[in-house]
């Protein structure tokens, strides 16, 4: 990055540290923080949407939909995450390529031949000749989708419980006013359920933050991958040889995660206070008394 860094083995002290910390690999490391934050920013709403759909389906009075919603939560929650991240992603990737091959390939041979999966080159997603960026973006997209499915199942269960926790009297009153089922759901049930869902959802958020290292299983290089890679001892084959510094890198990650979860806690606490406002819960009652 700097001119002084042209020959790293001849420099020492602060200059060395400055050059070391701005090497291309470190820049990749810093960018991976953005990757993780972006993943969280996309996954959290996606998982919430999946959860909401799952919970709504589970409450449906139409049996097949209800079974679908409950089955989704039960199956995904029961399968170990690591299996999901190892096998589901490969299956999803192959499934997408198979569907695409039906549309673009001339030869419709069954792609699963023994241990290999073969489709014509035009059906590859992304195409073999696409730039590395597309390969990464695709891997990232698969990651977001997989995280959304896994965490959506947990969120579905939380939201299902929260919907059932809304006092029945509230819904009955709404019905007595002549609201339709849809209106009761939208105007009464959903606005009130969040306060019951929030503790469970905040747990999920904390777990999601810590689950991001699973990204590496999907080929996305996250902060834990880079910390391990940068911290590992380096021989003279590298420009900046150093002993095993993983401890320092992982301490850095520890600080990052602690700050991040602390900030999350503060935000969630505020959100909780806001949602409790005017609710017929202990927290809502406490707020009312404090104000009076």
């Amino acid at each position: 990055m700097f001119d002084a860094c042209a020959d790293p083995k001849s420099i020492e002290g602060l200059t060395w540290a400055a050059c070391y910390l701005t090497s291309g690999k470190h820049i990749d490391f810093y960018w991976s923080f953005v990757t993780v934050l972006l993943l969280l920013a996309l996954t959290a709403p996606a998982a919430l949407a999946m959860g909401f759909a799952g919970a709504t389906a589970a409450r449906s009075r139409f049996l097949p939909i209800s079974i679908l919603g409950k089955g989704y939560a039960a199956i995904v929650r029961g399968v170990p995450d690591i299996i999901f991240f190892l096998f589901f992603v490969i299956a999803l990737d192959q499934g997408i390529e198979y569907l695409k091959s039906l549309a673009v390939c001339e030869d419709h041979a069954w792609p699963w031949q023994g241990l290999e999966f073969r489709v014509c080159p035009e059906a590859k997603v992304p195409l073999g000749k696409s730039s590395a960026f597309w390969h990464q973006a695709y891997g990232f997209g698969l990651a977001v989708f997989t995280f959304a499915i896994v965490f959506g199942a947990f969120a579905a269960n939380v939201l299902y419980g929260a919907m059932n926790a809304v006092p029945r009297a509230q819904l009955e009153t709404a019905e007595a006013y002549g609201m339709s089922h849809g209106q009761v759901f939208r105007r009464i049930l959903v606005p009130q359920m969040w306060v019951y869902a929030l503790p469970g959802l905040s747990n999920l958020w904390m777990i999601l933050i810590k689950a991001t290292p699973l990204l590496f299983l999907l080929g996305v290089k996250d902060i834990v991958y880079w910390a391990r890679e940068l911290g590992g001892s380096k021989t003279q084959a590298y420009e900046y040889p150093h002993p095993d510094w993983r401890l320092w890198y992982f301490l850095g990650l520890l600080v990052f995660y602690l700050i991040f979860t602390k900030v999350s806690e503060i935000v969630l606490a505020r959100l909780s206070a806001r949602l409790s406002h005017g609710q017929a819960t202990a927290a809502g009652e406490a707020q009312r008394k404090a104000a009076a």
Partner: peptide
Amino acid sequence: LTALSGAAFAQDVVRLGTEGAYP
């Protein structure tokens, strides 16, 4: 998918997979 398939029809690329941790 459409966006990806539209991305250039140049020469086929051979992708080399390595571990990157074995100096």
